[in-house]
Design a protein around this nucleic acid. Structure first.
Length: 770
DNA sequence: GTATTATCTAAGTCT
DNA sequence: TAGATAATAC
């Protein structure tokens, strides 16, 4: 071997390692065999993963043989680009890197036939799943107040995450008695039907992507062998948040080479509710007895005060691994606490604090983050930021792809790709309205379930199902089918953007939204264009990919994956869950109140309360320089005002590390806080350039009112206020008021027996009595 | 079948 | 409060 090449490689690897501390280096160098890296918050675990992959490639491992599972697709993009710059080549593009869901969706598409699915299967989101469950509950004539779709989906989801099939679920005696006790004995039956319907619709839900992968690897040894051989090195980020289903996939895939490296922090496990299991860390030690373990305990992110405050909180949890997180960073300022009287005031306090911190510390908006427990809390914060003219961006919440207009257009795309997609079909068969209404759809659904066919089968050949529908409607159905077929025929021949645009135009969606000139209508129209722009971008980047690939791409996007298009400098608003892995110079934690954080629903059990505490730990450790906590004495919930106690988590922070920005006893209400409060509220001046913060809904109502109120007095038909008229059904009455003109003229009539009614004269057949 | 209005009920976190 | 559903009118 040429010695000079070897030394240059060695020199390069040395360069790598120089960026890492000793423990990180050891973790990177341990490439062979199972390794577990327990990495505290801010200890540079992403860095270790990135360097480890770069090191592997540099050591001659083919990048095609590396599988890396990250928590978001964005994280994977960032990691890839960092690896590229470390290696100064484009090898990272060949890596199999992404979220569990997107990686295994990709594999499932490739191997779909083996488990009886077509490769163009669609992915049902939560709304689709709930809607399907709802139909099933209705079909079984069950009470949807007992069989709530959301709860049922949770139950099915956790079954799937524990690899319990519908049949196993229904046959299991323990589960049966559980469900009987909760008065839902037919859950197993619903699960069975749900599975069948998903299969008929060629659809998989989120959990299926993992569940079916397990089935695939279990029932097809040759497939398992193929991927075992392919993924010679497997790396997993955020291992503490993997569930049993994911763990089993990892275990199977790594069984041959056992080159598996997992990175995680039990203190940051916050997804138990979707099946994540800290026990996986323990299982890992059992399943891979010769595992090498590394601990990263040095925090590079936060000040001493923040690190110690977080440590003092997490120490209250009984269930945890011993760790000693420390930092060499400056001491920094104490955790600050502010109290507000209302949730709106809480928003103002935060907005004002950001406003002055920005000036005092010369910071940009993007150095600030406001974190909350529930998405609903963002509203009052947003309003305050708008008043202070501080640009912000919300991550999560009602995400772009969940909007009605977007889902409508996407449903057309989905149906084009997979006509069996029942939820997509139901969504758009009568949107824009084409005269195929509820009754017709019910008839079609009935025929479909009678013959165990898909809705598409029925409408595709109505005659062979003896569908009893008027010929006029039948014709409309036929037109609809022809339209979808024509889209489908263009799938492989026409560019994705061209076809997508064609669909938006020819179905009338664009026209329909264009016609709506209300503020919401306008924004819906813009949203459709945004989707089309995204599609166009996709088409330009991947010219040979069809609409089909676009659909599968976006159905697994996390909200954190969406890049800020304008790359604006803005304050980040998100739930604590969404903030995992991120860091911000100034972090605000709002709504620290009992019943909100910790959540009311977590107070029943220690395990759930401990998860809330870990969540608080995650939140605290996002902050680099400064962490502010706020709580409010009152808060609107379900439209009514409730009073709130400060969260127990505030008092769990070491007293020496926290500063209450209101004098007097913390638990004493009222007090001299008032002066603080006044100074905050006073300094808030409404910027005249800021748009009205009147809710959109109200604006619309106002416009409607103005439009209809053009009182013109009597018009055609000689009808006057005070005239006595007779109506076919309502009998005699007196005209109290007339409004509108021509064909829109409307009369308010007081009928003798029925009382006051408003009728459109165009429709109401009235005889004039006097 | 469609459009408007009235009533109900729900918001915990995410793929 | 606000979105979803049921009721109502044509």
């Amino acid at each position: 071997m040429n010695k000079s090449i070897l030394t240059s490689i060695e020199a390069q690897s040395m360069q790598f390692l120089d960026d890492l501390n000793e423990e990180q280096q050891k973790a990177v160098l341990a490439t062979e065999g199972p390794t577990m890296i327990l990495a505290g918050a801010g200890s540079g675990k992403t860095r270790v993963l990135t360097y480890k992959i770069a090191y592997l490639i540099q050591q001659g491992v083919d990048s095609f043989n590396i599988l890396a599972l990250t928590f978001t697709n964005k994280a994977s993009r960032e990691m890839k680009s960092r690896i590229s710059s470390l290696l100064d080549n484009s090898e990272s593009l060949n890596l199999w890197m992404g979220t569990f869901h997107s990686i295994f969706a990709r594999i499932l598409r490739f191997e779909a036939q083996k488990i009886g699915y077509p490769s163009n299967f669609t992915i049902y989101d939560t709304d689709d799943s709930k809607s399907l469950i709802k139909t099933i509950v209705k079909e079984l004539n069950l009470d949807d107040k007992i069989y709530k779709p959301g709860l049922i989906l949770n139950r099915i989801s956790s079954a799937k995450n524990n690899l319990i099939s519908a049949k196993e679920y229904a046959d299991n005696i323990n589960i049966q008695s559980d469900d009987l006790q909760s008065k839902k004995p037919l859950l197993g039956e619903i699960y069975k039907r749900y599975e069948l319907r998903c299969f008929k619709a060629s659809a998989m839900d989120f959990d299926d992507l993992l569940f079916k992968t397990n089935i695939l690897l279990r029932d097809h040894p040759e497939v398992l062998f193929k991927y075992q051989d392919k993924f010679k090195y497997i790396l997993v980020d955020e291992f503490q948040d993997t569930n049993f289903s994911q763990y089993l996939i990892l275990k199977k895939l790594s069984a041959r080479f056992e080159n598996i490296c997992v990175v995680g922090d039990d203190a940051q496990s916050i997804y138990a509710f979707r099946g994540a299991n800290i026990q996986n860390i323990l299982n890992f030690k059992n399943d891979f007895p010769d595992v090498k373990t590394f601990k990263l305990e040095r925090n590079y992110r936060s000040t001493k005060n923040i690190v110690n405050a977080a440590n003092s909180v997490i120490a209250k949890n009984k269930d945890q691994f011993k760790k000693d997180i420390w930092t060499d960073n400056e001491e920094g300022s104490k955790i600050e606490v502010f109290k507000a009287f209302t949730d709106n005031e809480e928003g103002l306090i935060v907005a004002n604090h950001i406003f002055s911190a920005k000036q005092n510390h010369q910071l940009n908006n993007k150095d600030f983050a406001i974190l909350y427990r529930t998405n609903a809390q963002s509203r009052s914060i947003e309003e305050a930021l708008r008043r202070k003219n501080i640009p912000y961006r919300i991550y999560g919440g009602m995400s772009f792809y969940q909007r009605k207009e977007i889902k409508d257009l996407l449903a057309y795309y989905k149906l084009t790709v997979n006509p069996n997609d029942e939820e997509a079909l139901k969504r758009i068969i009568n949107y824009p309205t084409r005269g195929i209404g509820k009754t017709s759809l019910e008839k079609i659904t009935l025929k479909a379930s009678e013959s165990r066919s898909s809705l598409w089968d029925v409408i595709n050949e109505p005659s062979s199902f003896q569908l009893k529908i008027s010929s006029a409607v039948l014709k409309k159905i036929e037109e609809f089918v022809t339209m979808i077929k024509s889209f489908n025929a263009q799938l492989s021949s026409v560019n994705a953007y061209k076809l997508g645009e064609h669909i938006a135009k020819s179905t009338g969606i664009l026209k329909d939204l264009y016609a709506d000139k209300s503020p919401e209508g306008l924004s819906r129209y813009e949203n459709i264009h945004e989707l089309l722009n995204g599609l166009n971008e996709f088409s330009e980047n991947y010219p040979d990919q069809s609409l089909s690939e676009f659909i599968s791409e976006i159905s697994l996007l996390t909200d954190a994956d969406n890049e800020d298009k304008n790359n604006q400098d803005s304050v980040s608003l998100m739930t604590i869950h969404a903030s995992k892995g991120l860091e911000f110079s100034f972090t605000y934690l709002v709504g620290l109140e009992e019943g909100l954080f910790p959540s009311q629903l977590s107070l029943n059990s220690r395990t759930e309360l401990e998860e809330e505490r870990r969540l608080f730990y995650v939140a605290l450790t996002r902050g680099e320089k400064n962490v502010c906590l706020t709580h409010s004495e009152t808060r609107y919930r379900w439209g009514s005002l409730i009073s709130c106690e400060p969260s127990r988590f505030i008092s769990e922070i070491d007293k020496n590390l926290i500063h209450f920005n209101y004098s007097g006893n913390f638990y004493q209400k009222g007090s001299s806080f008032k002066s603080d409060r006044e100074s905050y509220v006073k300094s808030d001046q409404i910027n005249p350039n800021t748009k009205s913060i009147l809710p959109k809904q109200k604006l619309v109502r106002l416009q409607k009112y103005v439009k209809n109120d053009t009182f013109k007095g009597d018009d055609l038909a000689d009808l006057k206020v005070g005239a006595i008229v007779e109506h076919q059904r309502f009998g005699q009455g007196e005209i109290l008021e007339l409004e509108g003109q021509d064909s829109n003229q409307k009369a308010t009539i007081m009928f003798e027996n029925i009382g006051q009614k408003q009728l459109l004269l165009r429709f109401a057949k009235l005889k004039i009595i006097s």
